[in-house]
Amino acid sequence: MSDPITHSPENPAETMRDVMLDIGYHEQIDTPPGHDLTKAHLITLPQKRTVQDLTSHHRAAAEYLKPARRKGTARVADLASLISWTNRFKGETSMLFASPDMAKPTLTCIADYHAAGAANVEDVTGDPSARHCHHRAVYDFPLSDEWKAWMAISGKAQSKDDMGEFIEAQAKDILDPTPAVLKGEVTTKNQPWENRLIETAQKIEGRFGQLKQLLAMSRQFQVFETSDLKVATNRDTGEAEIQFLNEHKDATGQKLNIPNLIIIAIPVFLGGAPYRMAVRSRYRKNGSSVAFIMSIYTPEKVFEAAFKEAVAAATEATGLTALMGTPET
């Protein structure tokens, strides 16, 4: 008769140990060699073997002491600061973007802009010319107080008193016309800006006045209107045409002949050089009241000249190309 088979009793402690090891077991999948942050770092977790992505944790740990790349937007206060920032961080792919918005002009430098050339969409590792475009500096051109004041009233009707108060407040911006401008002849002896203003007056049939004339108008200006009846008869048909011819006169009965142009010299941007511009002055009679309308002549051309001058200074100082418009968001 053979001996009975005997089994050694199980050790509960060892069994519990094995169970806990099995529960806590995890498997690492595709571990990036050398902590390659361009690849995902995946592991399986014991709960139903759930896959957990630890890539963000690895990247956060790697960037704890040093960021992997530059990012952020700097807001600089003047053009010189934008130029200094650009020269500090620019590279072969850096680019300037100039937005010529008359209300909110800006100049932006993207230090890590995309490289030139067509995109490579077939490269499985990604387009080698693509960049994040996350490292930027923006300069918001501050419009001068004078520019904002004149643009605010340009083309809008004002009462006689309101016009007078505005003219007194902005008297420092108004220039009296030079003898050459008053003479109204374009010659080679004149300054270029004088010829430009003379040509403007000729285009709109205007005449330049002085500051004291504007102030006198705002204080004493009165308009008297007379109407004459004109009847024209066609002898062949017998038809008659009746017209009322209105004429504005001053308090003494003389025909009004007032200057309708003034010269202002104001900077477009805060701290910038002043630009001479023509302002057209008109009046409109409505019953017993008179409304004045002052309109800057072609302000967009002056703004364009000042903006392009600033952009040209930035491109020359940084050696970068400037594109008109706004960059990709």
Rank of each mutant, 00 (worst) to 15 (best):
Leu211Cys: 03
Pro327Gly: 08
Thr237Met: 12
Pro100Val: 13
Asp53Arg: 05
Arg17Ala: 03
Ile242Glu: 09
Leu211Val: 05
Ser84Trp: 01
Ile262Asp: 00
Phe141Arg: 04
Lys148Ala: 12
Val231Met: 11
Leu45Trp: 15
Pro299Cys: 11
Gly155Trp: 06
His57Cys: 11
Cys109Ser: 11
Met163Leu: 13
Gly184Gln: 09
Arg235Ser: 06
Gln213Met: 10
Thr50Gln: 15
Ser159Gln: 00
Pro142Lys: 13
Ile293Lys: 13
Ser56Met: 12
Thr15Val: 08
Glu316Ala: 07
Thr326Val: 14
Ser81Tyr: 03
Gly271Ala: 00
Gln47His: 12
Thr15Asn: 01
Thr329Phe: 09
Met16Val: 02
Thr298Phe: 11
Phe292Thr: 07
Ile29Leu: 15
His7Gly: 06
Ser8Pro: 12
Ala74Gly: 02
Ala306Cys: 06
His58Pro: 01
Ser144Glu: 13
Val51His: 10
Arg49Ala: 14
Leu197Ala: 05
Thr125Ala: 06
Ala62Arg: 10
Gln158Trp: 08
His248Thr: 11
Ser81Ile: 01
Ile242Thr: 14
His26Gln: 02
Leu182Met: 12
Thr73Leu: 02
Asp161Trp: 03
Thr200Tyr: 06
Asp176Phe: 04
Lys104Met: 15
Asp101Arg: 15
Lys66Leu: 08
Tyr283Ile: 07
Asp236Ser: 10
Tyr139Glu: 01
Thr200Gly: 08
Arg136Ser: 06
Leu143Gln: 03
Ala13Cys: 00
Thr237Phe: 12
Gly238Ile: 03
Lys308Thr: 07
Arg69Phe: 00
Leu320Asn: 00
Lys285Tyr: 03
Lys301Cys: 03
Ile29Ala: 07
Lys104Tyr: 15
Asp173Ala: 12
Glu300Cys: 05
Asp112Pro: 01
Gly164Asp: 02
His132Ala: 10
Pro12Asp: 04
Ala306Asn: 03
Gly72Val: 03
Ile198Lys: 01
Ser99Thr: 14
Ala322Cys: 02
Ala317Phe: 03
Asn286Gln: 13
Ala232Ile: 13
Ile263Trp: 00
Tyr139Trp: 15
Gly164Thr: 08
Glu10Ser: 09
Gly209Ser: 05
Glu328His: 12
Lys203His: 01
Ala116Pro: 00
Ile264Lys: 01
Thr50His: 13
Asn286Lys: 14
Leu256Asp: 07
Ser8Thr: 15
Gly72Leu: 02
Pro179Cys: 06
Asp140Pro: 04
Gly209Phe: 07
Trp150Ile: 09
Ser154Ile: 05
Asp145Leu: 13
Thr252Lys: 15
Asp53Pro: 08
Ala118Met: 05
Met102Val: 15
Phe141Leu: 15
Trp150Gly: 07
Arg131Ser: 07
Asp112Gly: 00
Tyr64Leu: 10
Ala180Glu: 13
Ser84Ala: 15
Arg280Ile: 03
Thr318Cys: 00
Val51Asn: 10
Ala291Leu: 14
Lys172Val: 10
Glu27Ile: 00
Pro9Asn: 07
Asn87Ile: 09
Lys104Glu: 15
Tyr275Trp: 01
Ser227Tyr: 08
Met16Leu: 06
Asp18Val: 04
Lys230Gly: 06
His7Asn: 10
Lys183Met: 11
Ile23Trp: 06
Thr50Arg: 14
Ala116His: 04
Ala278Asp: 02
Phe221His: 12
His41Ile: 04
Arg75Ser: 10
Met294Ala: 11
Tyr113Ala: 04
Val311Ile: 01
Ile167Ser: 02
Ala60Trp: 11
Ala13Asn: 02
